[in-house]
Design a protein around this nucleic acid. Structure first.
Lengths: 203, 203, 203, 203
DNA sequence: AATGAATGAGAATTCATTCAT
DNA sequence: TATGAATGAATTCTCATTCAT
């Protein structure tokens, strides 16, 4: 009967992706069934397989969509020659925190089900995740070369520490280990940079 | 022959736990079958269920055994009044890194299958994991009170950043994102403390 | 080919129920596997779980379907004001015996696996089974009030004795303790009523 | 250490049987584990296998012990030439009811787990159970020959109806379908005979 | 594009029984 | 006699995926 134009089809696909975010965030990837996603999206579950090859591919899609945005953001920050390294790191931290503030479910899914899921999706997307570390390491490396950062630690190490600190803070919010009021989000951006760049030591 | 006195019975239990470490590290918790553990341990299938209520309980046991050792170590470090906060954090970093050096499979299992597995075992053991964060936060809080650390970030935040940085580094080793040669282990201890306490900024 | 419209889908469900009757009657509920039912029905294993939540639910469904028919029949008999109590009991005995004659496997399953299975399904369906006793007791009570039956025994007791006698006779047929030729079925209806209403005593 | 004389050994065996009655009555045969019996008896569960070949044999033993007593009682009643058939049936009903009054758990186990368990133990002990029916049928047959009972129903049928009525009443007590106060026990004896011999019809 | 009936592989768990001590 | 560690067979149920309509 009702034939759909390409645009409407794309909307259905998006509906499914959006529903998946809700369901994955609420129940976890492994605990939910494909039919839970379909129910949330208000479609028959066969339709999920019309748009995606598998349940995995739904999560892969969510991750890649968002991670590519993150990588682009990092690249853009890095390309801005006017910024000091410290400001670049702050901009990255800010982007990640704002991503969480804007769509906590999506970030929860990406962190919990992918980047921290070392044995499943985390492993599959290792190369992609590593791209982010490498971009950050590059920022550190250049700052060490210019003398802005000390050379006490390797760039790769610094990048892991920086990203690990942010991810842990987001995990803290996700699991209520850390207060997550609106003002805490802004504070967190400063805290990450303060800790990683300035250090805990008294001046 | 299979002997069956109490002392040797306890050894069988240990055998199963040790085999589980090997199997979980190699195949992952969800990917392995209980029979894989039994085979690796060289015991019958059912014996796993004689000593443990479920496959989950095997991992729970491994985690709790080791995590309690970690908590004890942190408490002991904290109790040493002769140490500066920075040295306390270094001692903790050192303990974790040495744990990994001594038994990488066990630490891999604990990190990959528990502390980073936010949706399954990580959630179940959240309170236990949090104990570690709280102990570290306490060290930071006291150092801020004494003026050793600046008060720029909250202790809870600092604890998460510190732990997150270490865990990320270990994850880097586990997945070959970071060189894991013997000398890198010792260097890592310094790097973590240098980054978190000293900061990346040039002096 | 396997067709999949709603009407034929309902047929598959029926196929599974019918196959379950055959398999439960032949092997017993606990001794058969779900795959035996699927094989007998000529459907895939999982389809049983598409239509029923569990193996138990298959038997529950068979029992409830049939028992509700029995209850309706008893109610209908009781509602017929033209019948004497003795004729009502005869009609009930007749209905049960005809049920057995018409589908001995189904009645075998219901009696052996449910109404006599006091510790499992019998217990679960106690309330439903009791409804039948209560309806019969009601018939007896009214007959006692009208003077058709003596008041020597309580209605509840009489109902149990009546039902117990019939069930025991069916059990006798099921296990070849009693001759079960076609003519025996009709005779049994008279015998039950004769025994319970007329008594064994010589007139 | 402590060696046991034959008498003490027999006591352990009895302890296990008594414990089995308690456990089977409480949990049901299939739902309990051998270790539950051992726990109740206060012995290691290996000891159950010292005295009995299997879990089944424990129940078989309980049933056969008690059923042989019942058969002996029926035979003794039948042998008493001074009793009318009606009194013989009353004596049998009385014996069964008193058995229940004296040890309700044991009778519950025998009825629920054996005589009504048509697909398992009931089938295995069919011949033994049938002996009781046959003895009762013999009493009826002789009473019909002597003119005490009418010949309207076959002895085999009458025996099933009589036994079925009693068993159903006991089942009613076991599952609280029928009031089971002390006075009800004595009344039940009369009721069974009144129903089966006298009939429900008003005189 | 959309539906949902049909498929079937896969794994944890239970527990009666054995047997070394 | 007595113990309880050790064995391993056996079966339910889940759910991602396919595909006829």
């Amino acid at each position: 009967m009702a034939t759909r134009n390409p645009r409407q089809a794309a909307e259905k696909r998006r509906q499914i992706l959006d529903a998946a975010v809700v369901v994955f965030a609420r129940q976890g990837f492994h605990t939910c069934r494909v039919s839970d996603i379909a129910d949330e999206a208000g479609v028959a579950y066969g339709l999920v397989y019309h748009y995606f090859r598998s349940k995995d591919e739904v999560l892969d899609t969510l991750f890649l969509e968002r991670w590519d945005v993150l990588l682009a953001a990092i690249r853009e920050v890095d390309a801005d020659a006017s910024l000091a390294a410290r400001d670049k790191l702050r901009a990255i931290a800010s982007f990640i925190v704002e991503s969480y503030r804007h769509d906590p479910d999506l970030m929860k899914v990406i962190i919990v089900e992918v980047t921290r899921a070392a044995n499943s999706f985390g492993r599959r997307h290792l190369a992609k995740i590593r791209e982010a570390y490498d971009l950050i390491a590059e920022i550190v490396a250049k700052a060490q070369a210019s003398g802005e950062f000390s050379g006490a630690v390797t760039p790769a190490f610094a990048a892991l520490a920086f990203y690990g600190a942010i991810e842990q803070v987001l995990t803290g919010w996700i699991f209520d280990l850390l207060p997550g009021a609106p003002e805490d989000y802004d504070q967190a951006k400063d805290f990450v940079v303060e800790t990683i760049c300035g250090g805990l030591d008294a001046a």
